[in-house]
């Protein structure tokens, strides 16, 4: 190879690599450095000495474990409701005519363009005792007493599902839209009714999108703060709220750092699980092959 040409090729490769430099600098300074700082902080006592005291304190506290449980309950609950509402929705979108699908898609994306704070307070107005939903329920005689829809787990879940549903539907819809419509026709011609065709063809072939959507829901909801803070009314306390309270009430940076790392580990575990599930699915090793 001509050394001058080889040098040109190297220079070109280096130039394109250098384009990622600003992003790398920002990620490095704004994400990785603070994490390292938090790790250091978690080993520091209030007196400024290194010890594992923070870990002992946090991990032996019942509050930590109940917060962890609440976090998982919220994430799993949100995911379950997203699946229940989102899978039929994605299927409807994927089988609608393109113009109708685009219109529906715009409606689904609309909430994403408004601030989460606005939306959360919007739900507060709708769901509280004298809110619109309860007014309709009691006014129409469906219930005699207003339902407790907010300042509890239900309210928090409603707010979180509202936020996550579009983000769940997007990858699922994309996966379902890419399925050749002749595949469902073929299944029908061989005797599969709609339910069977969905179970044996559409769901297995959109599994990748479903896993992606679930991962997005899980990872977002593990760290949710605003929605439980506003709609939970102090009764729903996931880890994010414990962290905030540890800092604002006790100014305990060490304990808060341990909680933060706990959340980080949880995220990593979820990430790895979903990533592995995706890998298995794309290699078709989960035995979804048989009807």
């Amino acid at each position: 190879m001509d050394p001058a040409l080889a040098a040109d090729a190297r220079r070109e490769r280096r130039f394109f690599l250098s384009l990622s430099l600003p992003a790398l600098v920002i990620v490095g300074s704004a994400a990785i450095l603070p994490i390292l700082w938090i790790v250091r902080q978690s080993f520091l006592t209030t007196a400024g000495e290194y010890s594992v005291g923070n870990y002992e304190k946090v991990l032996s506290s019942g509050l930590t474990w109940s917060a962890l449980l609440t976090t998982l309950e919220l994430s799993i609950g949100t995911l379950a409701v997203c699946m229940l509402l989102g899978l039929p929705l994605a299927l409807a979108l994927a089988s609608a005519r393109p113009r109708v699908a685009n219109l529906l898609m715009a409606f689904i994306m609309l909430p994403l363009w408004t601030s989460i704070l606005v939306r959360t307070y919007g739900w507060l107005v709708l769901l509280r005792r004298d809110g619109l939903v309860n007014a309709v329920l009691t006014g129409s005689g469906l219930t005699t007493e207003p339902l407790p829809l907010v300042y509890n787990f239900t309210g928090t879940l409603i707010g979180m599902v509202h936020y996550m549903l579009p983000l769940f539907v997007l990858p699922v819809y994309a996966a379902m839209r890419d399925i050749d419509p002749n595949l469902t026709r073929a299944a029908a011609s061989m005797g599969a009714g709609l339910g069977l065709a969905i179970r044996t063809v559409i769901l297995p072939l959109s599994a990748g999108g479903i896993v992606s959507g679930s991962m997005i829901v899980f990872i977002y909801t593990l760290g949710f703060f605003i929605t439980p803070a506003v709609l939970g009314g102090g009764k729903v306390n996931p880890i994010s709220i414990r962290i905030e309270r540890t800092l604002s009430t006790f100014q305990d940076w060490g304990a808060a750092s341990v909680l933060g790392l706990l959340l980080l580990v949880l995220l990593a575990l979820v990430g790895v699980t979903f990533w592995a599930a995706r890998l298995l699915l794309t290699q078709n090793k989960l035995g979804v092959a048989h009807a």
Partner: peptide, 17 residues
């Protein structure tokens, strides 16, 4: 699905999974 017809599609429509 009740007609009992064998259909061969232009793009074969085999189940890739």
């Amino acid at each position: 699905n009740k007609r009992e017809l064998g259909i061969v599609f232009q793009n074969y429509a085999l189940f890739p999974h």
